[in-house]
Design a protein around this nucleic acid. Structure first.
Lengths: 344, 344
DNA sequence: GTGAAAGCGCTAACAG
DNA sequence: CTGTTAGCGCTTTCAC
């Protein structure tokens, strides 16, 4: 009465197919792995018989002699982070399209777990995609020696990468704010160590210098809602009409706190974030933000990884830099012209 | 000048280790697979030499003779759905703990992709975990014949499952609302086909009957923010002081629309959702909700799957039903006693 | 306790 | 074009 879930009846092999087809096992093998090297008719016949017998190539057995497992590892420090799944999904889709299966390694922010997961995965995969990693540059270079590897949104010397065009993202949000009439900006900085933070701040200053604008910096803050709340406290002493947050979470925390302090958004302050996380359209007002090309980042990374696996040389030239897109919601507007708008 | 990412120097094998250790390859093999069947000292020596040589057991080669790949497939219809990654993560963690690697199959809501991904994965995995699937019951039973399989939060006859305690979740939210003083409720229904929807509505009616409460049902609505917005429109003609939404997304859309119509929440209406997605604490007011035991669901599923793989019989008895937890935020309060509180 | 030898299912020369 | 023959790296009887 208790149903067994598995019925381990041994699967048919090329030998079984060969026998009933009256050919050598190697011919069956060829019929599947290099159909061009076998007579079209026999190939067809073999396929038919195989189908009838329910034969399916065994990827494990195939991988042993060839080393070609058709699997890549995708490592993420936190699949729970709304920022990463689109990358993962883009990677997945691209991999599947090319006949590859992805092995997911979520390290839950733990370097140890990440190492362990990779350790375990490496022997079975043909390449590695680091979607977000907590590993050190040198550790990354180390593993890059074991397998073709590509890293997303991080700059590691001698390791191929695919990155977001941060300069463009900053330009998009500032163009938008300037067009609305803003001239003075505050940047709510993220973690000093974050590569994106440096990139954004630098681009911001460059842009400001070129356009004769004022830009001030507050922080650093943790890249979280709480970080944004703290930023709002600090902001009260250093007002500007527009604010650029390190990311959406900070932007949301910032808005939330400001509103609870009595500010009216976007009339009193315009806010823009980065990342375009799902919550941007759920909060009130909806957060204007710049979306990184997540999906493309993932698929491009896989594309390049597969090229690497195929024997391409990693180029030291400029890594692919993918364009971003601005999503205008309700958190940005023309600056309030009324004198003394919002008093704490 | 162009660094190769892979340095395919052949990895050391048991033969290499055996040679320098002066033992037979089979002994090296045993030292790793059944250390108890080998002299403790030689085992130790072998391990030392192996470490020195950088030898690592090759899971592929090991899998061929044994069929033991140490991999399970986790299939999700949508990794992008905030509801699922915690399940996936719980599964991941549990699997890793037991030495298993997870192969992620995101089907992006496409039955075809899901089938393909599973098709590809099946030969290499020892078991399958359906975290969320669009497959039909019979398709599920079909694949359950090929590999040990377990499904999460879905009721499929003859297939082992792990589910959320829906009755409990309803009880928790209603206990909370009743305690606040509410007596009349509206349920914003989700998709008719959703198993959870049926469970919730049924539990709701039972509870209401037992406690002499009134409960009305609106919908069905799509399980999205937009669905919630539509629900809010309908609600205007059928007010109650408290509302139970099919899920958080619906609850959030509902609140958003009501507020834009001039309602003051939670004074005019108390709202509770289900799922406890991340956005619940980002919206204003924060959404009171019931959290399913996502992580546990995932780990419990893996636990049971591994047992199945180990040869346990699937029991037809009650599947594990995991307890939920209520998170009280700002969207619930005592009902407004003032007459004619909110007029559209 | 350890070695020898025979595969696991498939691919890849090498002949024919 | 197709059959023969070795392996891929590891596990596993079966003797010693």
């Amino acid at each position: 009465m208790t149903p067994r879930s598995a019925k381990p009846r041994p699967a048919p092999t090329i030998y079984d197919v060969a026998r009933v087809a009256g050919v050598a096992p190697s011919t069956v093998s060829r019929a599947f792995s290099r159909p061009d090297r076998v007579n079209a008719d026999t190939a067809e016949r073999i396929r038919a018989i195989a189908a009838e017998l329910g034969y399916r190539t065994n990827p494990l057995a195939r991988a042993l002699p060839t080393g070609h497992t058709s699997m890549i590892a995708v490592s993420s420090s936190d699949i729970t982070n709304p920022y990463y799944f689109e990358i993962i999904r883009g990677a997945q889709a691209a991999a599947n399209e090319r006949g590859y299966t992805t092995l997911l390694a979520d390290s839950q922010e733990s370097v140890r777990l990440e190492r362990e997961a990779l350790e375990r995965a490496i022997p079975t995969v043909e390449g590695i995609l680091l979607a977000s990693t907590r590993m050190s540059d040198s550790a990354i270079r180390m593993t890059a020696k074991q397998r073709p590897l590509i890293v997303v949104n991080r700059d590691v010397t001698d390791v191929p990468t695919v990155v977001t065009d941060h300069a463009m993202s900053v330009r998009q949000s500032l163009d938008h704010l300037v067009e609305l009439g803003h001239r003075r900006f505050t940047y709510l900085a993220g973690p000093e160590a974050a590569w994106a933070n440096g990139m954004r701040w630098r681009s911001l200053r460059t842009y400001a210098a070129e356009h004769g604008l004022q830009v001030r910096r507050l922080g650093p803050y943790p890249p979280t809602v709480t970080g944004g709340v703290r930023a709002a406290e600090d902001f009260r002493a250093h007002r500007t009409t527009a604010v650029i947050a390190y990311n959406d979470l900070v932007g949301i925390g910032f808005m939330k706190r400001l509103i609870s302090l009595g500010a009216r958004l976007p009339r009193d302050v315009s806010v823009v974030g980065f990342d375009n996380i799902f919550a941007c359209e759920l909060v009130t007002p909806g957060l204007t933000t710049v979306a990184p090309p997540l999906r493309t980042l993932g698929s491009m990374a896989v594309h390049n990884l597969l090229a690497l696996i195929g024997g391409a040389h990693a180029t030291t030239a400029q890594p692919p830099t993918l364009p971003t897109r601005l999503y205008v919601r309700e958190s940005t507007d023309v600056p309030a012209t009324r004198k003394r708008a919002w008093a704490v």
